[in-house]
Amino acid sequence: MLLRTLTALVFFGFPAHADVWSFGTPSGNIECIVGEGFNGSDIECTIYKRNQRAKVSALAACPTSRGITFFMQERGGVQGACTAPGARAIGTQRVAEYNVEGKFGGFTCYSATSGLQCRNLDGHGFHLSRNNQQVF
């Protein structure tokens, strides 16, 4: 995807000029990659350690020993996948402190001790925490 400069990155304190960047929660258990291009923005977030099975029927069979990744664009629904055993991203660039909401690209995300919730322009989104992985 051809990428262009992100317009609003105040929320997580990211550099003003970025095409693809990442952030994670303070626990290090959730990592996200965000990109913005000519066709809009997208976000992909992965939770690595989970205590319960996902509340998404298509992912309910994913063992708790594996992570779950949710992907969405700024418009449309959410897609999910069970991660490969031992899969881990290369590490995040920034930390989204708890109790902070951010708006960037076509998304609004809220980081809290209860988990990370992200929503797109259509109101679709996901919630990730050790005890709850769901889409809406």
Rank of each mutant, 00 (worst) to 15 (best):
V56Y: 02
V78M: 08
A87L: 13
A8F: 01
P26M: 12
Q133Y: 08
S41F: 08
L121E: 13
P85H: 08
A8L: 07
E44Y: 07
F14S: 06
C118P: 00
F126V: 03
S129Y: 12
A89M: 14
A54T: 08
F126M: 12
V78E: 13
G123D: 07
K49H: 15
S65M: 04
S114L: 08
T83Q: 15
G123C: 07
F126A: 01
N99I: 01
P63C: 06
S22V: 03
N132W: 05
L6G: 01
N131G: 04
K103H: 08
A61Y: 09
R50K: 14
S111A: 15
A58K: 04
F23L: 05
L3W: 04
R66H: 05
G123Q: 04
E44T: 15
G28Q: 03
E97L: 05
A8P: 00
L9M: 11
Q79D: 08
S57N: 11
H127A: 04
A81L: 10
R75Q: 13
R130E: 15
T25A: 04
R75E: 13
H124C: 02
F71K: 13
E74S: 10
I33Q: 03
V95Y: 13
F107H: 03
Y48C: 03
V56P: 01
G115V: 15
A18C: 09
G13T: 04
H127T: 14
E101A: 12
A84E: 15
K49D: 15
